[in-house]
Amino acid sequence: MEKFTTLNSRAIPLQIENVDTDQIIPARFLKATDRKGFGDNVFRDWRYHKDGTVNTDFVLNDSRYTGSILVAGDNFGCGSSREHAAWAITDYGFKVVVSSFFADIFKGNALNNGLLPVQVSKEFLRDLFQQIESNPQTELEVNLEKQTISVKDLDLSEDFEIDTYKKTCMINGYDDIDYLVNNKEQIEAFEAQKIY
């Protein structure tokens, strides 16, 4: 897993609530057996019309916006457990997703893939959308060490929470398998004395 400490980037505003994993990566693209290439089809049915032409109304096709931070509406990533959603978002080039609320499974999948979910207040999210839309050049700074997200050159900043263990993993690029495999003896001891 890639290490994550600080990111300075512009952001893409996706002002839609309840973005589900079927929108992030439709089921028909889940037939691949490796983790690569899903970025081509991220938000496929919003990015393209059914005839394959580009939907210029969709924010990812709006040339004013760019960057590796996706700012999205409330309850991002609800629905299916497909980790392909996290793979598609990272493969497209995003490193951070900001929202006022994340679905559980998506959040876990993101953290397991070095994609940082930054949960902010509804007010901060609203201000962020306003700021980015009024000035698409707006740069954000996400500092994992300090657990802050701020708009550069403006007095707009908020702290965010992250599990201490997961923070250490993200900063050092560790994943859970390393930890679990190193604890095998303990797991075997547990198996030997299971009460149920």
Binding site: I105, G108, N109, N112, I177, N183
Partner: peptide, 22 residues
């Protein structure tokens, strides 16, 4: 409960998961 593919790999490797109690 449902899990992502990284967690599928974790259970393959250790029959365990690292989780915070909901």
């Amino acid at each position: 409960f449902g899990i992502g593919t990284s967690q599928v790999a974790q259970v393959f490797a250790s029959q365990c998961l690292l989780l915070t109690k909901p």
